[in-house]
Design a protein around this nucleic acid. Structure first.
Lengths: 217, 217
DNA sequence: TAGATTGTTAATCGATTAACAATC
DNA sequence: TAGATTGTTAATCGATTAACAATC
């Protein structure tokens, strides 16, 4: 049964994104169908877990003995993850990281359309970075309001993060993708996703440590 | 009781990093001590959960009626997370994102020392980016071996990711921080942390969708 | 002392795994 | 048909929450 479009736990959501990614790889390798066992194997996960996760996202059911049509499965998962409906966003802070994100063409595949960048540095304003216009930060609030934009990508220095956040919130932004190390204060009616490099790094180091520890035993 | 230096689940590990971040904020706001209830409140978490998490990382015990000395707590958690022991790393792929990471001074705080960047583009080689030397990719393997480096940061285009990974693995790299959209093939004696923008974006969109849904009810 | 908070143990809850009937 | 795989239900496991004795 297809799940009634909705709330799965974050851990399931993350695994579904992982499946989509691996399935695109398998498709590129020439697979046409895939079973939950094969997918589970490829990712070193339990087949029951994969089956259950998939049942949350699936519209096109699998066939016993055959498995799932890989194209249908990718389509279903990506649609469940929301890659299909386009979302407009602004990017604030056009430093190196901001420029890297502005130039990343992959976002379109996931339904994110960055309409432009904003920066307080006069020397970059009015230029284009990868075809995206850079506007002065003074125009941020009016642009967000006029275009009814709900998502902001924050790539300013940490010191400016809260001030910019306050502007964004007043202008009606409801989701912030925070690449700064700052802890943002915002009401919980606003979605915030912290891209915390420190955490990722710590997780990687811990993994490495445990692998090395296991070997020395 | 202080945990015997070891394996906590990834979800606990992530929360500990979150605590460290928030505690640094509280310290900046002038707090000297903090109770598990106060910390839990600040992060909208259950106090019992916070207490249990902290017990994994703590050396300096808290005092009943007072709570924890904030400096000691930060020190304990950061040491548990491994921020204190310095780790050398190489970065491969000095595009916009690579440059942004090379220039990010925050890594030092978390114990990561990027010794230099590597790129196949002759025009950037031999230059410096934020004081870090850029070397030709041909010197990657020998540098990794000579300096006995175990961690690599991968910021090449996706198409080159696997080829570079193969070089890195042969040179003895044991942990890869993967910022490319490619799915890397590597033995499971190598730690891989995928920085998957698509997943983060999907999580943020889902949060936003649920907030907006709740409001329209 | 009385009250707040610690550290830890017990109870609850949710997520993962195993089992199995349905089916191609 | 026989066997593999689906979708789903039941059993297990682990993580979260609640409760409580110890203590400053």
């Amino acid at each position: 049964m297809a799940n009634s479009e909705g709330s799965v736990s974050p851990v399931v959501f993350n695994r579904l994104a992982l499946y989509a990614r691996r399935l695109r790889g398998m498709k590129a390798e020439g697979f046409v169908t895939v079973s939950s066992v094969a997918l589970a194997d490829a990712l070193s996960l339990n087949p029951s877990l994969v089956k259950k996760d998939l049942s949350c996202a699936i519209v096109n059911e699998g066939k016993p003995k055959v498995g799932y049509t890989i194209d249908d499965l990718i389509e279903d998962i990506e649609s469940f993850l929301g890659y299909n409906n386009t979302k407009d966003a602004v990017l604030v802070g056009v430093g190196k990281l901001g420029q890297a994100l502005l130039g990343y063409r992959g976002f379109e595949k996931y339904g994110l359309n960055i309409i432009g960048g904003f920066d307080s540095d006069e020397s970059i304003v009015a230029k284009e970075v990868n075809g995206k216009k850079i506007l002065p930060i003074g125009k941020l609030a009016s642009a967000v309001k006029k275009l009814n934009i709900k998502i902001a990508i924050l790539t300013t220095p940490g010191e400016q993060a809260q001030a910019v956040t306050d502007i964004l919130l007043r202008a009606g932004i409801r989701a912030i993708w925070n690449f700064t190390p700052a802890h943002l204060k915002a009401p919980d009616t606003v979605a915030i996703k912290n891209e915390d490099m420190a955490v990722s790094l710590a997780v990687l180091s811990q993994q490495l440590k445990e692998i090395l520890k296991k070997e020395s035993e």
